[in-house]
Simulated scan of single mutants.
Amino acid sequence: MATFQLQRTVPLPLDEAWRRLTTWPRHGDVVPLTRITVTTPPPAGEGTAFVARTGLGPLSFDDPMEVTVWRPPAGDSPGLCRLEKRGRAVRGWAEIEVRPGPGGRARVIWREEVRVRAVPAVFDAALARAGRLMFGRAVNRLLRQP
């Protein structure tokens, strides 16, 4: 299993950083070759399920996820969202934490543990580096775009 973490500090209120990161269809706008379909009715919260479909044609796979923890930030209290990845190809979890940072800014901490079917453990370090790079770019774009 590959595990990685990334952090960003942005000049946004906590609730706005949270909104930008947890509006699931937006992730499809910033992750290459990916489309997000939310499969449960609004509002978003614990129990929300969605599928990230990544790839081109027959070289695509589904990454179904479910929100298992949903604690939006309130005032200066941090927010935490945990996603469980439940697909055949990709398993694991991701956590998105939004907390107060220096100077009234929001600090975002993204943690992820991922297992990819048929990828041996010897490749975990490379998979973690790739995840940090890909999700780092996605988080940057999500936080920049209103």
Rank of each mutant, 00 (worst) to 15 (best):
T3W: 03
A118N: 14
R129V: 07
M134Y: 05
W93T: 06
F123D: 06
F61H: 11
D15Q: 14
E46M: 09
E95R: 13
N140W: 01
V90P: 02
G57H: 14
V30R: 03
M1Y: 08
A130V: 04
R129I: 03
D29C: 11
V119I: 06
L133S: 13
G55V: 06
E66T: 15
R99Y: 04
V116P: 00
P41G: 12
T54Y: 07
P32R: 15
I96W: 05
V31M: 15
A17Q: 00
V69G: 08
G87F: 06
G104H: 05
A126H: 11
P11Q: 03
R105H: 15
W70R: 07
P43N: 08
A118S: 14
H27T: 15
P120C: 12
A118V: 13
L21C: 02
F135E: 04
V38L: 14
P120M: 11
R132N: 07
D124A: 15
T23N: 09
I109F: 02
V108H: 01
R91S: 09
R91D: 03
R111W: 02
G79D: 05
P13A: 11
C81D: 05
V90A: 11
P100G: 09
R115P: 03
I96N: 11
R105C: 14
E66A: 14
G28Y: 07
V98A: 06
L6H: 01
M65V: 12
G101Y: 09
V116H: 01
L33A: 14
R71P: 01
A121E: 12
D29Q: 13
A52T: 05
C81G: 07
A17S: 02
E97Y: 02
R53N: 12
F50R: 02
T23Y: 09
Q7G: 07
A2L: 08
K85C: 04
G45S: 13
A118K: 13
V38N: 12
A2R: 00
T3C: 12
P64H: 10
V108R: 00
P78G: 07
W18A: 00
R129F: 06
G57M: 14
T39C: 08
C81R: 04
V51E: 03
A126S: 15
P146K: 03
G103P: 10
P72G: 07
M1L: 05
D63W: 01
R19H: 04
K85M: 09
V31Y: 08
V139C: 04
R26I: 03
G75W: 07
R35P: 00
P146R: 07
T34L: 09
D62Y: 11
L59W: 15
V98F: 01
M134L: 15
G87M: 03
A118I: 10
A44G: 14
G104M: 09
P100E: 08
P73D: 03
G101D: 12
P72C: 10
A126F: 11
V69M: 09
P102V: 10
R144I: 04
R88K: 10
E112D: 12
K85S: 03
T37Q: 06
E97A: 10
K85V: 05
D62P: 06
A49H: 09
D15C: 11
F135C: 02
V67I: 15
R107Y: 07
R141T: 06
R86W: 00
R107W: 11
V98Q: 02
R111K: 11
R105Q: 15
A138Q: 01
E84K: 08
G28H: 08
R137M: 07
G45D: 11
V119P: 00
G131T: 01
M1P: 13
T54R: 13
G28L: 07
A89K: 09
Q145S: 14
A130P: 03
G103L: 10
